[in-house]
């Protein structure tokens, strides 16, 4: 039993908490991505940039008003409107074409948005202030309450989104369109409008996670790149278009990365999630968190 004693349990507990916090942010990004993929077969390469723009909107509103909650709400609304505009101008003309063209188009969008942010805000990272500042003691660390608040808020947003999909009239429209686009159209659901709305909701969720994540690190123009890659991994590991799977995979992968960073440097811990993705694709291409198809 010697090896059990060798494990630094305090660090493991800290990394578990860290993993769950980043996992919830990741789940918030990935659920928007998987919603967009599920409903219109669009792999949104620009999702990380929507996350980054949300964070920047948060910076701007926070700098003028000083109110974090106002920043959160306004950033979500502005990025959602931007998302709707993007969907109408760029993705609507591509409906019915090869899904690969949408990857290319959203890749172009991500270049535009990223360079716009660099041009507008410059290369120096910006900060958003934390809305609550207390700490509690976790072994040798003073763990900020704000991190716990992030996890709770993300869970709240995802929960509200799930309830909306389950019981809301428009949520049911979204699910119907995801299941069968043509049939939904035949039943009188305005499918193009539902597509636009779904993209706007996904963009808004990305923006919300951007604002929530902003206080933890500096907001800069390339912050979206890391997250969009992780979100891709999560969406594929969770099963494309599967919301519950994406949330499970987000927490699973974040925990794995957090534990891996006990052994190697955080930059190398990313490789763990890449390896999870490769094994998933090889052995369970439909996703880890979906029941085996019969």
């Amino acid at each position: 039993m010697g090896f059990l004693a060798a494990i630094p349990w305090d660090q493991v507990v800290i990394q578990t908490v860290n993993g769950i916090v980043t996992g919830m942010i990741l789940a918030l990004i990935a659920s928007g991505l998987t919603l967009i993929f599920g409903i219109m077969d669009v792999v949104n390469f620009a999702h990380g940039e929507l996350f980054m723009l949300g964070a920047y909107m948060g910076v701007v509103v926070f700098a003028t008003s000083g109110n974090f909650w106002l920043a959160l709400v306004l950033a979500v609304m502005m990025v959602a409107i931007l998302g709707a505009a993007i969907q109408i101008t760029t993705l609507r003309p591509l409906v019915g074409r090869d899904p690969l063209t949408t990857i290319l188009a959203t890749f172009g969008l991500s270049l535009i948005l990223q360079n716009y942010a660099l041009w507008q805000f410059g290369p120096v990272p910006r900060k958003i202030g934390e809305p609550i500042s207390g700490h509690f003691n976790l072994f040798y660390l003073e763990y900020p309450y704000y991190r716990i608040l992030i996890a709770v808020l993300s869970a709240g947003i995802i929960g509200a989104f799930w309830l909306f999909l389950k019981y809301g009239k428009y949520g049911i429209w979204i699910r119907a369109t995801t299941q069968d686009r043509v049939m939904a159209q035949a039943m009188g659901i305005p499918v193009p409008l539902v597509h636009t709305a779904a993209f706007a909701i996904g963009a808004g969720m990305a923006a919300a996670s951007g604002v929530l994540f902003g206080p933890l690190v500096g907001v800069n123009h390339v912050m979206g790149l890391d997250w969009v890659l992780k979100a891709f991994i999560v969406v594929v590991v969770g099963g494309m278009g599967n919301l519950g799977g994406a949330i499970g995979a987000a927490i699973f992968i974040s925990l794995l990365e957090a534990y891996a960073s006990l052994v190697v440097s955080p930059a190398q811990a990313v490789i763990v999630s890449f390896v999870v993705l490769i094994f998933t694709l090889l052995f369970r291409p439909t996703g880890l968190f979906v029941p085996t198809p019969k």
Binding site: P99, L100, I103, L229, F232, I233, V236, P285
Partner: peptide, 26 residues
């Protein structure tokens, strides 16, 4: 590894592989 997958899955897998090499080199 990547040729077992098609379409967007191929695109994403090749992307992830290139990032693995990027992280290793970096």
């Amino acid at each position: 590894f990547s040729t077992r997958l098609r379409d967007i899955y191929f695109a994403i897998t090749t992307l992830i592989f290139s990032q693995i090499f990027y992280v290793i080199i970096f």
